[in-house]
Design a protein around this nucleic acid. Structure first.
Lengths: 250, 250
DNA sequence: ATCAAAATCAATCAAAATCAATCAAAAACA
DNA sequence: TGTTTTTGATTGATTTTGATTGATTTTGAT
């Protein structure tokens, strides 16, 4: 019996029962205990089962990080407030840059049927933008796993051909001294470049992002207006000294 | 027994069972073990099966559960045959251009985990390409409503930065005198450009597209190899005079 | 809880099966 | 005819297998 066949059989047995003994597999497949042991070791290395004394059990599905798809469904009220506020800054016939990310995604419903042009590196944005009949340009380049963003040198270079009236950028961290930051340098470079290409520059960050730093700074505070949902009284002064701040409160 | 006959038989056996031993093939075809080994090696090089110790297994062996994405719309058998045939032409470490469209979409499952790079203007392709861990570059430019294609002058210009080993292009019409054609000129221009940038050029068209013309010709027949599912005897001669033709038949 | 028997384990090794490489004979070709 | 391609047998190398070893874990009786 071929090795993959045995492996398939083991996994099938395992999904039927929740647990199997080595002896039962020996009887089932008429091979030696050693062979079964080796099979189980291999399958365990592939995280397809978990070995236990005398047999094996199914592996509890490790839930990986929530995909963008999931994240965007639970858009918080705060994010929506920020998004609506930001969208109100756009005037007819503007050309805007919409960064990839969940907060900027929330802006799209507020752009419905408006006579504007959107340029974006966010692949997840495209469906909704099309649905709302908003003329859209996608930045070309390397497609980043999972996050649905376009990044890399090609994207950076291509961005240089554009000019924007407004740029809306997402961020992972906002810090008074460190500035705006994000985990991925390649994404950061793109954010930085987009900011330099725009007349008016905005960074969107709900209050959970304030006072946190990510690995890579893509801009100082003063280079872009911060749009957030609410500020503590003592923060307001500190931030306002360094940059324009807009508070999206209803 | 002729080599192609053996290969066809092996693939048929494989699709019936999911897995075959070399010995069973030796008995079935009355040829030597060596010959079978050579056959399997060759078929593996074309990614039509996977060799394992003692035999071979099917490649589309989805050990992972079929994703929603994957089965959301199963293409026709003809399209899949064309797609599989086309995918077998790709060698490791190739950089390929994958045109937007349903036929080229069907190629993606056959590219799973292969060490290649894909460049595409098809937004619909991206999800599946990411799922299969294929390094992907998206062409930037205007996003066309609904069809999920990127087109326009920006896309055209950006395409020029690339060079491909192989280009796979979809088409709406194939006509002996008129050539390859498509309804949208902007899409057509992109197809034409992609063809000029590639070492090897292929146009994919199932038999329903033969002998039909669309509004806009993007290439003469002779500039690209036609891959189709089946040809009428009288057509074969006519087409073969004008271009290379590959028939994806099982 | 403690201990010894039983069961299970990982590691090792030699036999068996399978493999890739080679080469000469057979077949196909021109 | 001579040349090229395909085939099948043979070689030694590699992989897989099953038995055996002593170590470790579990079991069950005290």
């Amino acid at each position: 019996m071929l090795t993959p066949k045995r492996h398939a059989l083991i996994l099938e047995e395992l999904s039927n029962k929740q647990m199997i003994t080595i002896q039962s597999l020996v009887d089932l497949m008429r091979v030696s205990e050693s062979t079964i042991r080796r099979d189980l070791s291999e399958l365990e290395k592939q995280h397809l089962l978990k070995r236990v004394h005398g047999g094996a059990t199914v592996v509890t599905q490790t839930k990986d990080e929530p995909t963008v798809q999931e994240k965007k469904q639970r858009g918080t009220t705060e994010k929506k407030e920020i998004a609506q506020y930001a969208a109100a800054l756009i005037e007819d016939y503007d050309v805007i840059y919409l960064d990839a990310g969940t907060t900027t995604y929330e802006m799209i419903p507020f752009l419905k049927d408006r006579p504007i042009t959107v340029v974006t590196n966010g692949l997840m944005h495209l469906d909704l933008l099309q649905q709302y009949h908003i003329p859209t340009y996608i930045i070309g380049g390397k497609v980043k796993d999972k996050t649905g963003a376009v990044i890399g040198s090609v994207a950076l270079k291509q961005l240089e051909h554009y000019h924007f009236n407004l740029a809306f950028i997402g961020t992972n961290g906002v810090d008074v001294s460190f500035g705006y930051s994000t985990p991925d340098p390649e994404e950061g470079d793109l954010k930085e470049k987009a900011l330099t290409l725009s007349d008016k520059r905005f960074v969107l960050a709900d209050h959970s992002k304030l006072h946190t730093k990510s690995a890579y700074r893509f801009s100082e505070l003063k280079h872009a207006t911060l749009i957030t949902d609410r500020l503590l009284e003592e923060d307001r002064e500190a931030y306002s000294k360094l940059t324009d701040v807009l508070e999206a409160m209803t």
